[in-house]
Computed example of a mutant assay.
Amino acid sequence: MLKTVSAGLALAMIATAASAEVKARTDSGFTLAFERPVRAAPETVLETVAIPAAWWSSDHTYSGDAANIRLDLVPGGCWCETLPGGGVKHAETLMVWPERRMVRFDAPFGPLQGLGADAVLTMTWSDPPEGGERQLKWTFVVQGPGTGAMADAIDGVLAEQFRRLGDRLDDL
């Protein structure tokens, strides 16, 4: 998924976001957690997630253009990117449950595909408490040989996407 995997991963290792945390790490896996307040209505969250071209960074695509990404929010739906003469499946939708404010993906993004890693991204958003703000949360759980060493780099890339989605939701 990275246009230039080496450069992208190196930069991502340096970058971290205040809302991101490597919650757990072993040699063969890791868990990342992201959380931030957003002002968008619950239906707007799901509608916005469904259009990754509006919030995913073009720097972290194979084609170099997030406009080539589409996301089908139905079980079995494809989070795919069109490439010249082909394409790539970044993730598959496992669950869409608007009533529970949850979407889940089988999501071996970027270099995780080449390792045959299992990766699950769960997105949730809360109803705000009285006078409070809605909380947007992502949890990314990865298992596979050698993946623990990739946690910081992947944390940097996903933290950027999470920030971009949150900023987009705040702008709506």
Score class of each variant (00 low, 15 high):
residue 1 M to R: 02
residue 1 M to A: 01
residue 1 M to N: 00
residue 2 L to P: 04
residue 4 T to L: 03
residue 11 L to H: 08
residue 11 L to Q: 11
residue 11 L to Y: 06
residue 15 A to C: 04
residue 21 E to L: 03
residue 22 V to P: 10
residue 25 R to C: 13
residue 25 R to S: 10
residue 26 T to S: 15
residue 32 L to F: 09
residue 33 A to D: 11
residue 33 A to M: 12
residue 34 F to G: 02
residue 37 P to F: 03
residue 38 V to N: 03
residue 39 R to C: 04
residue 43 E to M: 06
residue 43 E to Q: 09
residue 44 T to L: 07
residue 45 V to I: 04
residue 46 L to N: 00
residue 46 L to P: 00
residue 47 E to C: 01
residue 47 E to A: 15
residue 49 V to A: 03
residue 50 A to F: 02
residue 56 W to E: 04
residue 56 W to L: 11
residue 57 S to F: 08
residue 58 S to E: 00
residue 59 D to P: 02
residue 60 H to E: 02
residue 63 S to Y: 02
residue 65 D to W: 00
residue 67 A to N: 13
residue 67 A to V: 00
residue 69 I to Y: 02
residue 73 L to E: 04
residue 73 L to I: 08
residue 75 P to K: 02
residue 75 P to D: 09
residue 77 G to Q: 11
residue 84 P to T: 03
residue 85 G to K: 09
residue 85 G to T: 10
residue 86 G to F: 08
residue 86 G to M: 06
residue 88 V to L: 11
residue 89 K to W: 10
residue 90 H to N: 05
residue 92 E to N: 01
residue 93 T to M: 07
residue 93 T to I: 08
residue 94 L to S: 01
residue 96 V to T: 11
residue 98 P to L: 01
residue 99 E to I: 00
residue 102 M to D: 03
residue 104 R to T: 10
residue 104 R to P: 03
residue 105 F to Y: 13
residue 105 F to K: 03
residue 107 A to P: 01
residue 109 F to V: 07
residue 112 L to V: 12
residue 112 L to S: 09
residue 114 G to L: 08
residue 116 G to E: 06
residue 117 A to T: 03
residue 121 L to Q: 03
residue 123 M to L: 03
residue 123 M to W: 02
residue 124 T to C: 08
residue 125 W to V: 10
residue 127 D to P: 09
residue 128 P to V: 06
residue 128 P to S: 10
residue 131 G to E: 11
residue 132 G to W: 10
residue 132 G to Q: 14
residue 133 E to Y: 08
residue 137 K to R: 15
residue 137 K to G: 11
residue 139 T to P: 04
residue 142 V to E: 07
residue 143 Q to D: 12
residue 143 Q to L: 11
residue 147 T to H: 13
residue 147 T to K: 13
residue 148 G to M: 13
residue 148 G to F: 14
residue 152 D to H: 10
residue 152 D to G: 05
residue 153 A to N: 06
residue 157 V to G: 14
residue 157 V to D: 04
residue 160 E to P: 01
residue 162 F to N: 09
residue 164 R to T: 10
residue 164 R to E: 09
residue 165 L to Q: 09
residue 165 L to K: 12
residue 172 L to N: 08
